[in-house]
């Protein structure tokens, strides 16, 4: 059974890390979590990004956060990636599987996954 003592142990392990984490994120991943996003499946997409970023050990430079409605509800789940000095990338109709690919190729590899972007989806 999970106990508060166990939580205290996690706390002690993390105290040092907290200081390192502040104000160093170069990449922000923002998931739309208004009614439209949630109904379209944004919750597992958010979880996939949070898990993926942490499993890749990127949590000191990448933050994952939630926002409201971006205004393109028919393309939800929508995810925006902000990187210092680069143009914002908007990914649309996201899934947990697509999230894993975005982390691998874009966040780690630096190469935008074009076929998932809003620009690509609206080009046809």
């Amino acid at each position: 059974m999970k106990s508060l003592a166990e939580l205290a142990a996690i706390r002690d392990k993390m105290k040092d890390k907290v200081v390192l984490r502040e104000g160093t994120s170069d990449t922000r991943i923002v998931v739309g979590m208004a009614t439209c996003g949630i109904a379209a499946g944004a919750r597992p997409v958010l979880s996939a990004f949070v898990e993926g970023v942490n499993n890749a050990g990127l949590n000191s430079t990448v933050t994952v956060s939630q926002t409201g409605c971006i205004g393109i509800c028919q393309y939800e789940p929508v995810v925006e990636v902000f990187q210092a000095g680069k143009e914002k990338v908007t990914y649309v109709k996201m899934t947990a599987e697509k999230a894993a690919k975005v982390i691998e190729e874009h966040i780690k590899g630096g190469k935008v996954v074009e076929e998932y972007t809003y620009t690509y989806a609206t080009k046809a």
Partner: peptide
Amino acid sequence: LREVLGEVPLDSYEIIQW
């Protein structure tokens, strides 16, 4: 949880997992 955690934020990945 906050009483135990002190200044460690609730949204830390390890805490959310817990």
